[in-house]
Design a protein around this nucleic acid. Structure first.
Lengths: 164, 164
DNA sequence: TTATCACTCGACTAAAAGGGTCACGTCAAC
DNA sequence: GTTGACGTGACCCTTTTAGTCGAGTGATAA
């Protein structure tokens, strides 16, 4: 399982695109300037986002990229999938270790990490670009200026009490 | 953030050690045979587990490794930390991107991924070796033989409803 | 006192992944 | 037909992973 800057770059670029497009195509050059991400690297990422049907491209002058669906129909997980972020902590178990060790310990840890994957997937799948943008607007308006908000609080929907 | 076979190997080896030690040292050679993990690779992992105070070593004939604490005082997170698995999805943000892009989009995604890190950390930190072993014993005894149990169900303690 | 057992340590390797760059396309509009 | 922008494949360097190797050191027992 990996979650690297590639995925965060993609999410960031998609947020930028969402915010700065008003139905109009947004050029990668703009996103590159605003987000300080290499243009060539963005091209690579958006190639994958386009293949994954997350964005559509418009060529020629005045062209750029637009979301392929509404911002509420594109989840973070969609984006990570497009750029090839592998979220499942147990995925590479299949085929590499599965048959080489059929011990109880193997199954215990496999089940345990698979369940972590379920939790992560749920987290990423239930958040859309729209959710993120609305959340940040809320924060700007109703934020507590005395709190740094640097440390994220666990979401209220999650009960962290008894993971086993 | 990475969660690779290194971490799973370590957890598996620690489970093996826990189950097969009765206060006595367990040789890496045994673990290697049972779990089908390269002996030399195990040596590397246990070096780190020892440096991280998760196990103690006993040298000489009859030697091997024993847990440094009880199985209920060693969490999965402890083990992953020892072998160098980086669990925080937002960790490598600090210092590499932080100052180069101070955009709202950057902060949105940073907070979001940091919160995922909190959730993952909580999951890994609240599970001890003892928890895993007891859980697997329960399954063996009270298991439903008609259900394959291959697909892990989300833990009852987690409410997956509203992650944002 | 020496053989042996088992951990200890540093160095090394091949392969993969991550992050990024480049040159050269092609399509569309003015 | 030139310019703006995406499209594509190939390439690059660095770090990490997973694994190997060989020469130790410390403890036990014959």
């Amino acid at each position: 399982m990996r979650l690297t800057s590639k995925g965060r770059y993609a999410v960031r670029a998609m947020l930028d695109l969402t915010v700065n497009s008003n139905g109009n195509p947004v050029r990668l050059q703009e996103i590159s300037n605003r987000q300080n991400i290499s243009l060539h690297y963005l091209e690579q990422l958006f190639r994958r986002l386009r293949n994954g049907q997350a964005v559509k491209s418009v060529r020629g002058p005045g062209g750029g990229y637009v979301l392929a669906r509404s911002m509420d129909e594109i989840t973070v997980k969609d984006i990570l999938d497009c750029v090839g972020e592998n979220i499942n902590p147990a995925k590479d178990i299949i085929g590499s270790e599965a048959e080489t060790a059929n011990t109880p310990e193997f199954h215990i840890s496999k089940d345990y990490f698979q369940n972590l994957g379920v939790i992560m997937k749920e987290y990423l799948q239930t958040t859309s670009l729209g959710d993120l943008i609305r959340k940040s607007r809320e924060k700007d308006l109703g934020g507590r200026p005395d709190a740094p908000t640097d440390t994220p609080e666990p979401k209220p929907g999650y009960n962290m009490g008894t993971p086993i």
